[in-house]
Amino acid sequence: MDLLLQLMMNGLVNGSHYALLGIGFGLIFATTKLVHFAYGPIYAATAYVCWYSFMQLGLPFWAAFGLCVIAAIVLGLLSYLIVYRPLQSRSDSGLVTLIASLGLYTVIENLLGVIFGTGVKSVQGIDSDVFFLGPVFVTSFQLMQIAALILVGGALALFLRFTRYGQAIMAMTDNAEMAQIVGIDTRFVALLVFAIGSAIAAVPAVLILLKDSAGTHMGFSAVFLAFLSVVVGGIGSLRGAVAGGFLIGFVESAGLWQISTDWQSSIAFIILFLMLMLRPDGLFGVKR
């Protein structure tokens, strides 16, 4: 029983992490219809920038965090402006931009290795506290992962609901052509979601850097799980991305109760497979 509670706590923590990744990726995906694979290496790059600013340049941690958010935004905007936007006018743009995003994925991931070296980077000097909630233990970094989802997700939800730009994003998510007709500057909105979505990626990246470490390959599983959360939850729904992230987190943890850790990502795949067979539009998907 204690083990199960502990696994549920881990599921909650990992689920929050996946949900946060899913929100950032899903915001870009739902609004621009771009499968932004480079989201993964950009996520990894922010962890590297944070590590470099803090460990090598000796900046205070808040400054290092600020810098890495800026780096994420810049990389996100450049991806859109240099790679995606010129290709979007083409008739077969869905496939072409997808292939381009895979190219961009390779470029950024390997440039990280060229610039920073392939070794694993970790942060020293910031330690976590361990708390016991009854029989369940949890670290302060893990609590921060849960808190990050609540703060970032909540702020994003308020932004989307109550601001003009948030409404513009929602309109474009619903129907980009119609949004353009009613006078929304869809190019600006696309830039906006790339900026916001990329900035969101910096938060889970830094938390993983603190909790574990950063490596050049961390981007693949990040973008894969983000994509998975979105697909499981239903494309076009942020609520769905959060639900999808938690579902994956909990099922993974529950699976670990009986199955060896070696098979962790296979569990996620099996969820996906069942989802697609049973509910092709996701948990909260809009039937298209």
């Binding site: 290709l87 083409r90 072409v96 381009a100 190219g103 390997n110 440039l111 290795g113």
Partner: peptide, 24 residues
């Protein structure tokens, strides 16, 4: 060699994007 390996992959990625853009 490890840097060269990664440069190789960077080059593939760049070529892929350039071809998509200029000679689809």
């Amino acid at each position: 060699t490890d840097i060269a390996d990664q440069m190789r992959l960077v080059i593939y990625g760049v070529i892929l994007i350039l071809v998509l853009r200029f000679r689809p």
